[in-house]
Write a protein that binds this DNA or RNA. Sequence first.
DNA 1: GTCTATAACTAGATAGAC
DNA 2: GTCTATCTAGTTATAGAC
Lengths: 208, 208
Amino acid sequence: MSTKNKILDAAELLFADKGFNGTSLREITSLGEVNLAAVNYHFGSKKELIKAVMSRYMNELSPRLESVLNALCQEDTQPSLIEVFSAFIEPLLYLNTFKDNGTSTFLQLLGRGYTDSQGFLRWFLTTQYPEVFTLFTQAVHKAYPELSAEEMFWRLHFTMGTIVFTMSSTDALIGIAENDFERQVDIAGVIKRVIPYVAAGVAAPILI
Amino acid sequence: MSTKNKILDAAELLFADKGFNGTSLREITSLGEVNLAAVNYHFGSKKELIKAVMSRYMNELSPRLESVLNALCQEDTQPSLIEVFSAFIEPLLYLNTFKDNGTSTFLQLLGRGYTDSQGFLRWFLTTQYPEVFTLFTQAVHKAYPELSAEEMFWRLHFTMGTIVFTMSSTDALIGIAENDFERQVDIAGVIKRVIPYVAAGVAAPILI
DNA sequence: GTCTATAACTAGATAGAC
DNA sequence: GTCTATCTAGTTATAGAC
């Protein structure tokens, strides 16, 4: 395995667990068993390393997401909100075949990126991968045309919050659930539980 | 104004904006216009300062929350989920009279605490203020008795995520909304929008 | 490409004068 | 209680040998 990949693999685990601010280059190079200077040689800076970690996932995810969302938007029949949100399942779970615990790691990274570093990652994603956001909004509009653009804006952000926050604490939540309810849960189980929740939230009666 | 309060006021603003990890004691004492050494003199450590910032809000909030939730639990009639979540509005908005932008600041701090510092704040709140959590669960159960304990666990965490994440990026969201929809929104407006969303999510059809 | 060594800086915490 | 000065340990980043 190349030094570059060793760094990426170590970085994504630590970033997901402790956040971007909370992880030092020393921890990354130590876990990856490479030299400290290698990060700056291969990536230039910590900020570029963060982008590279996210890009490795987004480059797998975004074409698959665009494909399923495009299909939904082009269908003649009106999709349900459950169908729209369920469209994310297969592309997200694909990350597990691409990498061990890939789905969970990616979603945790997403959560970190939205709260750490004052929105830098939000800017990076919306500017680098805008098609996904556009298609998603279109699909939701098709499923629920009565929802005004303003109300949709708020509800999609609430949804983003639910997903991102849940995933950034998935490990802890799964641990508690297994302890309290003696039930095995995995990331797919969490995703299947959260979809009815967010679909119902987006479909809620409109505030007068 | 006392040095102690100058530090608390400066700290809560910076913590809410940049997170606990992302804020240095030097930034705090500089904004508060007090000496660097004063933090350790008055609070002992940065960790204790974080607790003190949160406690100042929780000590105002928790008795009010306990009171309204208790009232709901003791009523003879079954409350709706909207009523249960709406019970939070008055105590949360009270923080605005207690301090300028208090509601927004507190909710942002809560959001930070759940993602920064690997769950230390979650531990602090659940161990220091357990009654609020217990009463809230009881109230939700009364409003929706068919929901199993396990399903409730997940949905309440999704709800927590929605609230906390939304609030930790409220300022950015309110700015975007005002730009895109030419509509003034304040923290009370966001709270009133999020309640139907989370109430519908918790009330969603149960997964088979 | 990979290493050591170190520069340049920032962090939290504290000793001790006043 | 408040200050200056400083300690120790951490950070990112880089220069230069191999």
